[in-house]
Simulated assay, not measured.
Amino acid sequence: MSQDEDRTTGGRTGTADDTENLRRSAAFLVDEALGFLFPAALRAAADIGVADHLADGPATPDRLAAATGTDARNLHRVLRLLATRGVVTEDERGRFALTAAGQALRGDVPYSVRAAVQMLTDRTMWRPAGELTHCLTEGTTAFEDIFGLPFFDHFAKDARTAAVFHVGMAAMSDQENAPIAAAYDFPESGTVVDIGGGHGGLLLEVLRRNPGLQGVLHDRSHVLAGNRLEAHPELAGRWRPHEGDFFAAVPAGDIHLLKRITHDWADEDCVTLLGHCRRALRPGGRVLVVDAVVPPGNAPHQSKALDLMMMASLTGRERTEADFAELFARAGLRLSRVIPTPTVLSVVEAVAA
């Protein structure tokens, strides 16, 4: 090989600019590969509740370590990394303070996402994400290979994991529910069925904003036990719980809500579920799938990251507008419109075909 040839350009003569670009690429990719340590640090901070001890102002790692029962030097190292992403900030005296962006890591504030961070970085999400190569070579989720059961079957046998998931999902949804409920023009009367509605946060917001509506919260019995609607006496008589498996049947209604449900499941499962909705839909009714809609192009969008989480741990996926249209058609429905909301989610509306 001549002196003008460069191994990094495949044996072709490369310019100095080519070599510099490759060096920059190498540095960039190494930095990206280290990116997994930020959510690891974020989880550690959530686990020990350090943000709550910053509510009254800046504090040193020594003071925070004493309050949280942790090692001061290692806590400083975690906080130092979080400061690089604007979750906390370190002053010239070595004290750390929460930024505006980090406030929701506290557990004592409205819209706290502490439980959501713990869910998204739980071992049920974290470990399969490290096995994406398995998903590529085998075409299947990595979850069952690691835990021995499919995702939701594992939940049924592991109360700890189930609690982390449902509490975390409720926390993740809290900041979404009000703007989603406000973004859609619900009818003045009728029954809204929140299918797989968890603790009922979205249904609560819908009923608050639409006093003429009745509600049904449909989920498994152990999930319904944690519902939030019972804590609101002003809604008494306007809603009822309904225990069931949405793959078997769903209650009749004028509006069927499915928030963050279809992305958990493979296409065939979604067609089954949407088919149940179609049969249970009253004349003139609508199915509202509230999920991320993957946009075209190269721009960042949370749906593209969530899609890999679905690939690693579940059987579902995030979908484009065309994907939703195809699912609806197979279930006897027709996509009528996609309504964006101020959140990462959209309301994908379907009517009877």
Rank of each mutant, 00 (worst) to 15 (best):
L132K: 02
E318R: 12
L37K: 07
G14I: 01
H242N: 02
R317F: 02
E176S: 11
F246P: 09
Q118G: 05
D17E: 06
F155D: 03
F328L: 06
Y184A: 02
M125G: 00
G285V: 10
G284V: 11
R319P: 14
D145S: 13
A231P: 00
R63S: 15
E349T: 08
E318Y: 11
P300C: 06
K157T: 12
H301P: 05
L82Q: 02
M172K: 14
D291G: 10
P251S: 06
E318W: 12
A322G: 04
A27G: 04
D269E: 13
P233I: 01
L42E: 08
A67T: 06
L203P: 11
G139F: 14
L202I: 12
R209Y: 02
H134Y: 14
G148E: 06
F155S: 01
G94V: 04
R209D: 09
N227M: 01
A170G: 09
D254L: 06
T68D: 08
A163I: 05
A67Y: 02
S221A: 15
A101T: 09
P58Q: 09
G168L: 06
R220Y: 09
G107N: 09
V287W: 11
G107A: 15
N74M: 12
G94Q: 03
A116W: 03
M1I: 06
T141R: 11
A40E: 13
H154F: 15
L335Q: 11
M125V: 05
D185A: 15
D91E: 08
W265P: 02
T84W: 01
M311V: 08
R73V: 14
T343Y: 07
D91G: 05
R160P: 04
H154V: 01
